[in-house]
Computed example of a mutant assay.
Amino acid sequence: MSAPATDSIRKGASLLPHTAATPDGSPVSLDGAAVRVARQRAGRRGLLVIGGLLAALALAFTIRTLLGDYTITIPDFWRILLGHDAVPGSARFVLMESKLPRAVAGTLAGLALGASGATFQLMARNPLASPDVLGLTMGASAAAVFSLVVLRADGPAIALAALAGAALVAIALLTLSGSRPGAAPTRMILVGIALSAMLTSVVHWVLLRADVYRAHEAMVWLTGSLTGVTWTQIALLALVVAVALPLLLATARELHLVELGDDLAAGVGAPPRAVRGRALSLVVLLVAATTSVAGPIAFVAFLSGPIARRLLGGRAAIGAAALVGAVVVVTADHLGAYAIPGVNLPVGVITGLVGAPFLLWLLTRERASS
């Protein structure tokens, strides 16, 4: 064969699609292989992140439960849980009435808030969206404070009021932001900010009408605190998280489709309005239950999504955000209790101190990238 013919064959071969073989011998394009490798790497990274977050949560839970001004050994911890009598009564009281309830409530609250924040950010396609910013938390808080101060309610009545307040705000968000699908995310944020400002004024008005004792109780609760949480409240919150969180995780695929755009999501069988409504209903349950138990813990829902996204290399994941929220709340509660000797700061104060600089950093970063 002549040299020109050989050169022509080589040039033609260079223009053919490059292929590779799978273990069973079938050809696969290198583009497909690259996608598969990328997915495998993302999957491995996701497993490592989830494993690391679970380990961090276990460590934070252990520190919150066993260490502090009253140290409890691991053997005594298990003896108390198993009901053995060979443990001092003081250790039993500290563990079962203070340390363990706050650790369990902090874990549940963090899971609920972290998942709720990541869900809002997916729906709004904006890292600045969260139940705090969009008014859902304030709706639950305003209703709960009104029932606490004006109606002098307590216990289940406050939980029901918080649920009703969050539900009303959610209905307003969907109604006022959903007229045009393409404008829904931006409009949802604007509507939420307006509702939050209005409800803040309602809370201030209610506090002005309250007596000193009720006003102080409401102010402590509004700060976000795990002090005095009871096992009955924990059982209610655990039931809501056990039901709503798995359902929210099950909607993650549709939420990711909605994140890509309303038109695309509707084209592949995920109607944006229906998906947002279903997800928002679950978020209402999680936020209202958490707020009724611990008050509005600031910035946890806002922080969890962006942190989880950075850990996963830019991918959003509701499950990872839930674990981040749990780690943040349990760690912040321990710092609030023991960081300053003799001072017990509510968990909301610590998360606010951490969350405000993070918000400023995120705003600066968003501005620089735009």
Rank of each mutant, 00 (worst) to 15 (best):
R315H: 10
T65P: 09
S98Q: 11
M198W: 13
A184H: 15
I158P: 05
L122G: 11
V49I: 10
E217H: 01
L122T: 07
D262I: 14
K11R: 11
S201K: 04
S141Y: 05
A301E: 10
R310L: 03
V293Y: 15
R36H: 07
A250S: 14
G83C: 04
A298Q: 09
A55K: 05
G305P: 03
L285Q: 03
S141A: 12
L174P: 01
G46R: 15
A109D: 02
L15T: 08
V229Y: 13
Q233Y: 06
V324G: 01
R45C: 04
Q233F: 01
G295W: 00
S116V: 09
G295V: 08
A337D: 02
S141T: 08
M219Y: 06
A161K: 15
I350F: 10
A184P: 00
G224C: 07
L47N: 01
V324A: 01
S29T: 14
L226D: 05
L335K: 03
A317W: 01
L59S: 04
L353Y: 04
R180G: 05
D85G: 13
G43P: 02
I158N: 04
P101T: 12
R102G: 14
S196G: 06
P4W: 00
V220A: 06
E254G: 15
V275R: 15
G51D: 02
E254P: 04
R310A: 01
L95Y: 14
H216S: 13
S147M: 11
L59Y: 09
A172V: 08
S2M: 11
V202G: 12
H204N: 10
L353V: 10
E366K: 12
A218N: 00
L148E: 13
W78S: 09
D262E: 13
L363Q: 04
L160E: 12
E254C: 06
A109Q: 07
